[in-house]
Simulated scan of single mutants.
Amino acid sequence: MPNWSNSLLPNNWLDACQYLKQQQQAFCIATIIAEAGSVPRAGGAKMVISKQQQFDTLGGGNLELSVIKHAREQLNNANQQSQIERFSLAADLAQCCGGAVQVMFEFFMVDQPHITLFGAGHVSHALCQILAQLPYHVTVVDNRQQWLDSIADLGVNTHYHPQPEEQIEAVASNSYVVILTQDHGLDFKLSLAALQRQDLAFVGLIGSQTKAQRFDLRLREQLTNPSWADQLICPIGLSEVSGKLPMQVAVSISAQLISLLQSHQQAPSNKQKKLQWQVGNQLRKQLAGEMTDD
């Protein structure tokens, strides 16, 4: 995946989704899911709309303007519920095509968990291959630009800093911080700075039990509150996932992060699931009935 922060803007809806996720911007995917009569574009056509930009097209004209207007109204209201809207090109939009379309609006807000990886080495590279496919906002920080360049195409943000420990201050609160640099001295500085903040959801460090014990002693000497050292997770990863290859370690770490993130997110109740199914079923019936009337 391209690193859009260092290139031109995307020119199709799929790349636009990745770009907006990287930029932490809320967006809407508008999809033509049904059509009747003459219409600018066929079913399946998509465009992506954010509060300031739009990508790809549903055919232009008043239809597209109306879709963009509706999407932005919902984005401004922080709506997260999918919707299906009907647009009659002749009666409602004064377009000569004369047909009608059903457009599904899917909204993606910017409440994704933040994961910041310090270190762009082999394990970080493997970990990004996994995390980039999940609904997380991932940033990699390193003081080696060439290593960041090798990781940028995976679809995550990269940030160069000559003193990575100073970047701890810029990490968003409630973030998940994973420390896996090539330098044990830097690992300690990062661990100390991260724990000192006391507003991060998770601080994990790659290493052995011996490394964990040594860091624990030093952290208790230097932290404002020695008990904060207990919050450092080292070795990071699930013990049930064994192996020392970069991808094996990455799977272990990602499994731990996914488990923690899921436990922090409230799953929908059975009642909510039933309601979601009923709404979806009602929309499908409405869609089938209205399209046969045209």
Rank of each mutant, 00 (worst) to 15 (best):
V140M: 06
L195P: 00
Q182W: 10
F107Y: 15
K21A: 11
G280K: 10
P235F: 10
A91R: 12
D92Q: 14
S208L: 13
Q74P: 00
C28R: 09
P235S: 12
V156R: 01
P113A: 13
Q265Y: 02
I32C: 03
L219Q: 09
N76M: 08
H264E: 12
K46T: 08
P246N: 07
Q278G: 05
Q133I: 05
G289L: 13
I168K: 04
L180E: 07
W228V: 05
P164F: 06
D230E: 11
L93E: 12
V279K: 11
S242R: 08
K51Y: 03
L245W: 02
A45V: 07
W13E: 11
A90R: 14
G37C: 08
Q145E: 14
Q129N: 15
L219S: 12
L93Y: 07
A132S: 15
E165T: 01
K189D: 12
G237Y: 01
Y136D: 02
V48T: 14
S254I: 08
E166C: 09
L190P: 02
P113H: 03
L75H: 03
W147S: 14
S88G: 03
P246D: 07
D142A: 14
K211F: 06
G289R: 10
D149R: 06
L131W: 08
S191L: 03
L190T: 09
Q272F: 07
T158P: 00
A71G: 05
R86Q: 14
K69C: 05
K51V: 07
G44W: 06
K189S: 15
L9D: 14
I151W: 00
F87R: 05
E165C: 05
G119N: 03
P246F: 11
M291F: 04
S124F: 03
P246R: 07
A172Q: 15
Q52F: 04
P235Y: 10
V101E: 00
S50A: 06
R214E: 06
G237S: 04
P2R: 15
V67R: 01
Q182N: 14
L238F: 11
N157D: 09
L260M: 13
P40T: 12
Q266F: 04
N143F: 11
Q248E: 15
D230C: 01
Q248D: 12
E85W: 04
S242T: 14
Q24M: 06
N3G: 11
V67C: 08
D230V: 03
C96Q: 05
I32Y: 01
S242M: 07
I236V: 13
N77K: 15
E165S: 13
T139S: 15
D153Y: 08
T116L: 08
Y19E: 04
D183S: 13
F27A: 09
K274T: 14
Q272V: 13
I236G: 01
K244C: 06
E221G: 04
K211A: 12
G121F: 01
I206V: 15
Q83Y: 07
D199H: 10
A170T: 13
L131D: 10
N157F: 04
A100F: 01
Q266K: 13
F215H: 09
A78G: 00
A152E: 02
Q196N: 10
I130T: 15
L20M: 04
S208C: 11
I236K: 03
H114G: 02
E73H: 12
T158Y: 01
L186I: 12
A120V: 08
S227V: 12
N12Y: 10
D56L: 10
G289T: 07
K285W: 02
